Measured scan of single mutants.
Amino acid sequence: QLRFETNGEEQAKKVLEEAKKHNLEAHVTIENGKWVVHVK
């Protein structure tokens, strides 16, 4: 499982879109005010 700390909602959405293009499972959590994308 990969973990990407992003700078906010915009970047998190871009990472999610990329993951979906590659048929990867991804979800976002907010940790300590940071948007974190988890990709399987």
Rank of each mutant, 00 (worst) to 15 (best):
V37Y: 00
G8Q: 11
K34W: 08
Q1M: 15
N7V: 11
Q1Y: 15
F4V: 12
V28T: 05
H22L: 14
H22T: 04
Q1G: 14
V39D: 03
G8V: 12
V15Q: 06
H38E: 07
T29L: 08
E31L: 05
E17S: 10
G33D: 07
V36R: 00
V28R: 01
Q11N: 07
E5R: 01
K14I: 13
G33A: 02
E31M: 06
V36D: 00
A19Q: 03
R3Q: 05
E10V: 08
L16H: 03
Q1W: 15
H22W: 13
N32M: 05
A19E: 01
K40D: 13
G8K: 10
V36K: 00
V39P: 00
H22S: 07
H22N: 12
N23H: 13
H22F: 10
Q1A: 14
V15N: 02
L2G: 10
N7Q: 13
N23Y: 09
K20F: 12
E10S: 09
N32E: 09
I30V: 13
I30A: 04
E9K: 08
A26F: 05
Q11A: 14
V15Y: 14
T6K: 03
L2N: 09
K34H: 10
I30T: 06
E17R: 10
V39I: 15
W35G: 01
L16T: 04
L2H: 11
K40W: 15
H27P: 00
T29F: 07
A26H: 03
A26N: 02
A26G: 06
H22K: 10
H27E: 10
H27K: 08
N32D: 13
K34M: 14
K13H: 12
V39W: 04
I30G: 02
H38F: 13
K34G: 04
V37I: 07
Q11Y: 09
N7T: 13
E17D: 12
E31N: 04
K14Q: 13
T6F: 15
H22E: 06
V39E: 01
W35V: 04
Q11G: 10
L24Q: 07
L24A: 05
K34F: 09
E25Q: 12
V37K: 00
N32S: 06
G33V: 00
N7Y: 12
K14T: 09
E10A: 12
F4T: 04
